[in-house]
Design a protein around this nucleic acid. Structure first.
Lengths: 193, 193
DNA sequence: CGTCTATTTGAATGTACTCAAAAGCGGTGG
DNA sequence: CCACCGCTTTTGAGTACATTCAAATAGACG
């Protein structure tokens, strides 16, 4: 189990001593998810908070017309879940699946709660994660309101150049809020310069 | 100072004893904001977490072409701030102003921090607020990706019938992500049924 | 290799925007 | 209290952005 990345991630915000580190280690469950395999479907209970150590996952919905809409991607060093479902242990509204073969570390709800009790610092840690996620979302809402499709695309590839390589255009268009056909046209237009 | 509403709001999630109640009361600062008056401008430091007891505020940006984009409205019983600016005490990116004459209760950053220390329950309370806000934002992102302008409008007036009465169409269109002209056309079309 | 899905391309269409002008409405000052 | 000013809303015509449909091509995977 490769835990370097997750400890780096945690050390950005809180410092753990040896005992705390050991306890944290004991609640981590490694798992691999093959490309296109589901981690969660609507109706399931989201039982884990998931940290990506390798690969890429996505959270999305499918609308009445069968179109996908991506709420978030999570590659290495990102946390992902259906937050509401996890929190309340109620049925999920989102799909989560693997964009590529992926390796993750998972913590169950019960163990997160134990973690809060035994190592209250983690309360702070997950609060900071949530704060950052909230601010990022606020920004995305604002940009979805302010920007044209082209601006959103340029902004995306500039902000996540790694992801651009690894996602299909269909996946990216489902995040940007445009059709794959239109994204293809945009790229052709932008390439011809 | 009318504190009924804010205590109701807090009691939904945590229970305060007499001493805690007194301390909380001591950090509340009432303020009135006249219609169109600013509570915050980009570049300011957001010094307060603000609870609306009467009236309505909005958080928004103005883009390069002078168009407004509303990130959130806050009417009675809602909390509002430029969250990132408040948290880090760094320059704000959003405008906050009053849609109507408004009365609020404010808490400074210093006092929130004191509150966390003296009454750790508030840590929990504000975490719950943040969680709810996060989930609501996630939903809004998803709906902005999935829905047409008409669906977003119908969803909005169904979800916030009170707000529909109190906002100008220009303000509502800046939340929905359409032009006021197009909202006017939508309404005409929908009324003729 | 064959099948399935993603991407490209083009044409036609629809959704939402721009521009412009008129009408409505609210606040202010004489 | 009414007249005026500025801003919002309405309306229409023309336009642009993005979608749909369809067919051809390219790529991924067993």
């Amino acid at each position: 189990m490769d835990t370097d990345l997750i400890f780096q991630n945690i050390n950005k915000h809180i410092q753990l001593d040896a005992i705390e580190t050991d306890f944290f280690l004991s609640v981590l469950q490694p798992r691999t998810i093959k490309k296109k395999e589901y981690l969660l479907k609507p109706g399931d209970i989201c039982r884990y908070e998931t940290f990506v150590t390798k690969g890429c996952l996505r959270t999305y919905t499918i609308d009445d017309n069968g179109f996908e809409h991506v709420v978030m991607f999570a590659m290495e060093d990102w946390w992902i879940s259906d937050f509401y479902s996890f929190l309340t242990q109620s049925p999920a509204t989102y799909f989560i699946d693997a964009v590529e073969d992926t390796e993750v570390l998972q913590i169950t709800k019960e163990n997160i709660d134990r973690l809060y009790e035994r190592v209250p610092k983690f309360d702070r840690f997950f609060r900071i994660l949530l704060q950052n996620a909230f601010v990022a979302q606020e920004k995305r809402i604002n940009q979805n309101l302010s920007f044209t499709a082209e601006q959103r695309y340029l902004n995306f590839i500039q902000k996540y150049p790694q992801l651009e390589q690894r996602l299909s255009q269909k996946q990216m268009s489902a995040y940007l809020g445009i059709t794959p056909v239109f994204l293809s046209m945009l790229r052709r237009k932008l390439a011809g310069r």
